[in-house]
């Protein structure tokens, strides 16, 4: 079986001051091994909430989420933390690196939590990842001396330290200028090419166009699910136009 992530009739409600508000309802989709999927939708459509629910950061109110055949809704917090640490990677909109640590320590952090004895091996792995991301020279720098793009690339390195089976991205390019955004996207594509599945939340059609599949969301539900085929580099206009057409078709 090649399905790595499976959402079945997922619903999510938050208790608010005026009763319950339903943020997600009746959502089903799968992500296969090595697949690159984007979730797109306007603000408030529930795309980030969906990402947190399927990655085990948050629990679902209805339905179930399976990761590699394991039902996340039946797992306790410890097990879900374990999965996030060892088999999933996360990249956020803000770089979200710890201010007190230098770049290298930020990247090594999770691996050290797992295995503190093998610090040397962990460090060489981190350095290798930074080498590939072009930030090896910044290893000993404090994080406030880095640019947004550099920070985000460090964030991706951190996410890759555990050689995740799936990498989640919550608008990872949202706070970057276009050239920095493109550098980060190239990193994502390299990671994906090496076999890691990616689930990316974005509201930028040009970013979404670089994935294999785009799930379009509206008002907490899936409005469309379009397949673009693997992006091999080169001109993006055609793919972007397809995404744009699909979003217009559902009225967003």
């Amino acid at each position: 079986m090649n399905t790595i992530l499976k959402a079945e009739n997922v619903g999510k409600s938050f208790a608010g001051e005026n009763g319950e508000s339903r943020v997600l309802q009746n959502i089903s989709f799968t992500v296969e091994k090595g697949e690159f999927v984007s979730i797109m939708g306007p603000s408030g459509s529930g795309k980030s909430t969906l990402l947190y629910c399927v990655s085990g950061m948050d629990t679902v109110s209805e339905g179930r989420v399976e990761f590699c055949g394991q039902d996340l809704s039946r797992c306790g917090d410890e097990i879900r933390s374990d999965l996030r640490r060892t088999r999933m990677g996360f990249v956020f909109q803000q770089p979200s690196l710890l201010k007190n640590l230098n770049v290298l320590d930020n990247i090594m952090l999770i691996a050290l939590r797992e295995n503190k004895k093998d610090a040397a091996a962990i460090q060489s792995r981190a350095m290798a990842l930074m080498e590939k991301a072009g930030i090896a020279a910044l290893a000993d720098r404090g994080i406030d001396s880095l640019s947004g793009g550099q920070l985000q690339r460090a964030g991706v390195c951190r996410a890759l330290m555990c050689a995740p089976e799936i990498l989640f991205g919550d608008e990872p390019t949202g706070a970057l200028n276009s050239s920095a955004a493109q550098e980060v996207m190239e990193m994502f594509r390299r990671v994906n090419a090496a076999g890691t599945a990616i689930l990316l939340v974005t509201h930028d059609a040009k970013i979404a166009a670089q994935s294999e599949r785009v799930i379009l969301m509206r008002d907490g539900g899936i409005a469309d699910d379009i397949s673009l085929g693997r992006y091999q580099g080169g001109a993006l206009e055609e793919r972007t136009a397809r995404v744009d057409r699909a979003t217009r078709a559902i009225g967003i």
Binding site: L98, K99, N100, L101, N102, D105, M108, L112, D140, G142
Partner: peptide, 26 residues
């Protein structure tokens, strides 16, 4: 952002102690 201490100086204590103590210095 404050410059903390490098992990290698506190590596023997484990990550949680390192993060905890690092914050003290920061």
């Amino acid at each position: 952002a404050a410059k903390g201490i490098a992990y290698r100086k506190l590596s023997a204590l484990g990550v949680n102690a390192y993060l905890g103590l690092g914050d003290l210095f920061a």
